[in-house]
């Protein structure tokens, strides 16, 4: 009904130039206004995208020359030309893996509870409201939470584990929402079919509902977790280091990440470090793009299978 229908509403004289009454002097100006507005709206939609594309293009040009095997496998250095991102890269990958290992089971579990068990209960409604509010809490606040709870109270220190716990809580609302969407797309008739066969609720969930929702959950979860790769502020707050010349040797080791390394470089006044930052951004965006590509590919495959 919407969409195309709105595009060509019947009876609007402004739309079809061939049919516009030519004896009405105001119709020409109205048509001009319409065209101008469409151009303006289109411009406003496309301009930010164009700007982003240009910025990304620019940073790629700036940074690409810097990227090489050395850059990827070197430790940071006081001399920009010799500095590399190995600790950041390894740190980011370990951190994200750990974050996913924490956030995915909890998030999917919470989604299953809210969607399959708690649908009508008051406590589920409270939890839902709570999740909606958490999604709007600035990430830097999660940093303060991580600092207070994981780093200090639980004594994890400024470690990979503390960072992963913090990020896991940060992405949890997104994982929950994405998983719930996926579960919602499993038709109720499927659940009823299971229950009518005498299955218990959990038997239906584990053997039918979750397998059906799995590809979509996976897509949503990849997208949610990929957001955590770019997170910087909460990690800075819990005390991830910027200058790390070693690789983390366990979950309790100090760490740095790609975005923190970029932040460190971009904060330095020397132009040569800005080039390093640009190169780091190219690596970061490449990683993000790859992950999003995987998620989009999965989604496309899923849609093909449904069709």
């Amino acid at each position: 009904m919407n969409g195309a229908g709105k595009n060509e509403p019947d009876g609007t004289p402004t739309h079809d130039p061939g049919k516009a009454p030519t004896n009405d002097p105001s119709s020409a100006s109205r048509r001009r206004r319409h065209v101008a507005f469409v151009a303006l709206a289109l411009g406003a939609t496309v301009l930010p995208l164009a700007v982003l594309a240009m910025l990304l293009g620019g940073v790629t040009l700036d940074g690409l020359g810097r990227i090489g095997w050395d850059f990827l496998t070197s430790y940071p250095s006081r001399r920009a030309a010799r500095a590399g991102i190995l600790p950041g890269l390894v740190g980011s990958i370990s951190l994200i893996s750990l974050t996913a290992a924490l956030a995915v089971p909890i998030g999917v579990g919470a989604a299953v509870y809210l969607e399959e068990y708690g649908k009508r209960t008051r406590i589920a409604r409270i939890i839902e409201l709570n999740i909606a509010n958490l999604a709007g809490v600035p990430s830097v606040i999660y940093g303060l939470l991580g600092l207070g709870v994981f780093v200090r109270t639980l004594g994890m220190g400024r470690s990979l584990l503390a960072g992963a716990c913090t990020l896991a809580l940060l992405v949890l609302p997104i994982v929950i929402v994405a998983s719930r969407e996926a579960l919602k797309n499993v038709p109720d008739s499927t659940r009823e079919a299971c229950l009518a066969l005498g299955s218990t609720r959990w038997q239906a969930i584990r053997q039918v509902v979750l397998p059906m929702a799995f590809p979509e959950i996976l897509t949503g979860v990849i997208l949610a977790v990929s957001r955590a790769i770019g997170e910087t502020a909460p990690l800075v707050v819990i005390g991830a280091l910027a200058y790390v010349t070693f690789l983390p040797d366990g979950v309790l080791a100090p760490f740095t990440t790609l975005p923190i390394q970029i932040f460190d470089w971009v904060s330095r006044p020397q132009q040569s470090f800005a080039v390093n930052a640009a190169a780091g951004i190219v690596v970061l965006m490449g990683t993000l793009l790859a992950l999003n590509g995987v998620a989009i590919g999965l989604r496309a495959r899923l849609q093909r299978r449904k069709a």
């Binding site: 038709p187 008739s189 079919a193 299971c194 009518a196 005498g198 038997q203």
Partner: peptide, 28 residues
């Protein structure tokens, strides 16, 4: 003990014909 057949045919979309027939036994 009281089975049900629904308005719209709702075989499990991810299962083969064989698995659909066995679904109740497998589920339980």
């Amino acid at each position: 003990r009281i089975g049900m057949v629904f308005q719209k045919p709702n075989p499990f979309p991810t299962m083969s014909i064989r698995d659909n027939v066995l679904a109740g036994l497998r589920l339980t």
